[in-house]
């Protein structure tokens, strides 16, 4: 059961070893989460994340292996995660994603398929089973990690961006469909986040660290806002960016 601040007691994290997911898990475990199911591709990385979750206060951290390149396995993985949770689930976080490498991926049809599968199709299929399970429970929250790149897709990251854009639109409308059911969905749109993946790249404006993102998530759980921006100012930045004429957009983004 969640408390007045939307802090959950039983959580499932799909994509539990990513740095952002781990930062969120740390905050949740330190708050009220006693059971955190971590689902991911790499058992070793999951073990590390699990030990960390226990350090921060979780007592029960079951692990589930998933393969985000196989959408046909998504439903089964979600079912396994729910069973491992051992009770009614308060929050499901969908943190599955892969930044990829636009330059090499964009010429490779197989890489394109993989990018769309991992970033859009698998999460969407998983979301369907999550939605069904939570509706059967009659309560629960879903948090989907999208990206500010989903708001307007830019040339330099159009595979990641467009996949996230698709997921973002799907989630927004799915959240509408959940009105009145006792289940809700929130979308996290982080800007650039300092992680292993982005280490060594030049830092863009409004970059945050994973802990900051997690702080905004905790505030978002309390406020119930549909879209959680990290940092919040990006809401206004993108309000402007999304409406720029194409030439101006290209000029701004191709420099960044």
């Amino acid at each position: 059961m969640e408390n007045a601040f939307g802090q959950p007691q039983r959580v499932i994290v799909l994509g539990g070893s990513s740095e952002i997911a781990r930062a969120i898990t740390r905050k949740l475990a330190a708050a009220r989460a006693h059971t955190v199911v971590l689902a991911g591709r790499n058992p070793e990385l999951l073990e590390v994340a699990a030990a960390e979750a226990r350090d921060y206060g979780a007592t029960d951290v079951p692990l589930v292996t998933i393969d985000a390149e196989q959408p046909s396995s998504a439903a089964t993985s979600v079912i396994q995660a729910f069973e491992a949770a051992g009770g009614s689930v308060d929050l499901v976080i969908i943190a599955v994603g892969h930044l990829g490498n636009q330059i090499t991926d964009e010429v490779d049809p197989a890489a394109v398929a993989q990018m769309l599968t991992v970033n859009f199709t698998w999460p969407a299929v998983a979301l369907t089973e999550v939605r069904n399970r939570l509706l059967a429970q009659g309560s629960g929250r879903i948090l989907v990690i999208s990206s500010v790149g989903a708001v307007r897709v830019r040339r330099s990251a159009y595979l990641y961006g467009s996949a996230k854009a698709g997921l973002d639109r799907l989630c927004d409308a799915l959240a509408d469909s959940l009105d009145g059911t006792g289940v809700s969905l929130q979308i996290l749109r982080p800007g650039a986040v300092r992680t292993r993946m982005t280490a060594g790249l030049k830092e863009v404006p409004f970059t945050t660290g994973p802990n900051e993102v997690a702080d905004y998530v905790m505030a978002g759980l309390a406020s119930g806002d549909r879209i959680i921006w990290s940092p919040p100012v990006l809401r206004w930045v993108y309000l402007i960016l999304r409406h720029l004429p194409r030439k101006v957009w290209r000029a701004v983004m191709d420099r960044a």
Binding site: M1, E2, N3, A4, F5, G6, G138, S139, G180, T181, G182
Partner: peptide
């Protein structure tokens, strides 16, 4: 119905 306490936090349906 959607129910909560007087503080209007953590609503649930019953």
């Amino acid at each position: 119905q959607r129910l909560s306490g007087w503080g209007r936090t953590a609503p649930s349906w019953a």
